[in-house]
Design a binder for these strands. Structure first.
Lengths: 249, 249
DNA sequence: CGGGAGGTTGACAATCGTCAATCAGAGTGG
DNA sequence: CCACTCTGATTGACGATTGTCAACCTCCCG
């Protein structure tokens, strides 16, 4: 069966990663109404406090979720790659409790909330698949809590680099020997609850210890995966990858 | 329509909090097969690495989720109250990526995973309600990430106390003037990424500043809700309570 | 009454943050 | 093609929040 080339294909691929879908389910997904839009780096997909009526599927590029706390400090909660429903949460919960912002230039598809809800009702298998996806998201959030609360700076960064390496590999954007991560050190700091200055020093140490090599800023080479994973206390279970995923080899 | 008194009633109540369910949905929920069990404080509901085949509904008492990181330190990820499905995540994701432990003596209902899955398939409205619940859970995780990563000790603890106050009130276990929280200072530390010693000092400061009063250990009186919420940078949006919930008054 | 878990406190150490200066690189307009 | 500018990276000196260690206390429970 030829795969129809639609902007929604990344979503389909994502849902099928964990769930078996019947042809009718697939067709229903691809029949979703949507509207694509290109957004430039730094633009907001949703802002905290808004009441979005559409969910947003990331088709191309990277995006991240963030919260701003009282004193203006920012916390980055997750980084998203193509195929991720970046905004199910906000759209279904009524009021956005956090913002979503473009990390690179991105392309997204806005899908009316009602259409997703109807899809989940009419095709329970698809509803389950999306639910499943939410569960995996939550698993990453949990790991980030542990990362930020109980690991030191060195481990935190190492852990984050490991997570990115695997996810980038799954997404087909690189492999565990190296990848380009379009994240500034300040953003890395906001991912880890550190300051940009300390992130810089820590990256330097990781380099000096021979775990990574930073060609140019942003372009990360992992020189010793085992050591990095050990330093980061990294165990990929929480990513809930399929055991037959080539990224795990 | 008289509410049938079943151990599953807390689940029903929870799902109906956000979602409208039809009579047939309600009946299907109450028809779930289950097995109740009483567990004493400190016992594990699920251990990291297990492959649970049942989901666990908390009927009475409190429980918490935790992860242990490489050096043995513990991170508490969430605290659960009666009505919470404490283990959807682990049960659906195959391998438990974290543990769930009883905070007090508890009573739980174990429900076969397959029955839940079938319920979600046959009654999409129930599936949606459970999905919704997962979304709210994820929202709490996000707030905890922000709490741990970008607030100082004083704010973190204040924030946590505010969250508990509201949730306890919603669960009908106390109100915002005071409640008993059966959490040791060490557990509080693991919730906030601090040490027990520092938690102790911080609670003391909160007391000295007139925000709270600690009658006996564990029995917390909130003397000045506004100040506490301000100190904790607390905004209840992320709890996704209904705007007509009396707890918000 | 004894044991133990948990709470409290002080002295000291260290990781990490702050401030500030300098540097490197990318994009822009003349 | 070359300033010019701006963002982000790098580094050093210093400071502070938080952790560590250890002692002692308190209360609960058997």
């Amino acid at each position: 069966m030829p795969v129809i080339d639609s902007p929604l294909t990344p979503l389909l691929k994502k849902l099928q990663y964990h769930s078996d879908l019947r042809q009718s389910d697939v067709e229903a997904i691809l029949a979703l109404p949507f509207e694509t839009r290109k957004l430039s780096r730094h633009s907001f997909v949703v802002r905290e406090g808004e009441k979005p009526t559409h969910s947003c599927l990331l088709i191309d590029g990277l995006a991240f979720r963030q919260k701003i706390v009282g004193d203006g400090a920012r916390s980055i909660l997750a980084i998203h790659m193509p195929g991720d429903m970046v905004d199910l949460q906000n759209s279904f919960l009524g009021v956005a409790d956090h913002s979503v912002q473009a990390l690179t230039d991105i392309e997204v598809a806005f899908i009316p909330r009602a259409a997703i809800k109807k899809l989940a009702f009419d095709h329970p298998a698809v509803g389950m698949a999306m639910w499943f996806d939410t569960l995996v998201d939550a698993s990453l959030f949990r790991e980030w809590i542990a990362n930020v609360s109980r690991r030191d700076a060195y481990s935190r960064i190492a852990h984050l680099l490991c997570e990115f390496a695997l996810r980038v590999k799954v997404a087909g954007l690189g492999d565990e020997t190296g990848y380009v991560l379009p994240v500034s050190q300040e953003q890395l700091a906001d991912c880890t609850g550190l300051t940009a200055v300390h992130v810089n020093r820590t990256l330097k140490r990781l380099g000096e210890d021979g775990l990574i090599d930073r060609r140019t800023h942003r372009d990360i080479r992992i020189l010793d995966w085992r050591k990095l994973a050990e330093a980061g206390d990294f165990d990929s279970t929480y990513l809930h990858l399929r055991s037959d995923d080539p990224a795990l080899s």
